[in-house]
Amino acid sequence: MSSALMSSALMSSALMSSAMWSNPVQWAFWLLGGLALLGALGTVTRRSPVQAALFLVLTLVATGGLFLVLHASFLAAMQVLVYAGAVMVLFLFVVMSVSHTEGETLGLAQGTVGKLIGLAAVGVLGHQLLRVCLTVGDGTSVGAALPGGFGDVRSLGRWIFSRYLLPFEAISVLLLVAIVAAVAITRRPPRGRAEGEG
């Protein structure tokens, strides 16, 4: 969601620049940003869960491409491998094993009030984004101020294990919590008292 929003922000600022048509990077940016937005729209509008999940794959792959445009090759590879690969395969697995019938749709029919609230939120956010894009200036400077080695494995590793060591370790604990929690709540209900059960 936020990545789509950010890419749209960057996109509109790229729109302001005059030099955009001459630069192949800008072309790639436009294409990928558009694909990411298209996928995001498809994800939230498709009624079939499988189609929605596939649109999400499109968004994730396009976001991976955007990382590549930003010279973050390692992040791009990870994005595609982990999210578009592993996570989405699990998603599709669950969706396909849960929905039994062919034409099953998501039961998220929202009333008029819900749609109006959603539209209002989109309007407010869009308006703010537009204001920011108009004040930030043109998008040609994106990527210009990056330090050497930005986004490659070496610098990423150095950051993770030095300055961002604490959040890195804390996220490991977070993942541990998620695993333990998932195992704890999916176990079978005990038949007797706790003493008799493993």
Partner: peptide, 11 residues
């Protein structure tokens, strides 16, 4: 209440 307490305290 018959809970298994294996992961309760660590959680």
């Amino acid at each position: 209440h018959g809970f298994a307490d294996d992961a309760y305290f660590s959680l």
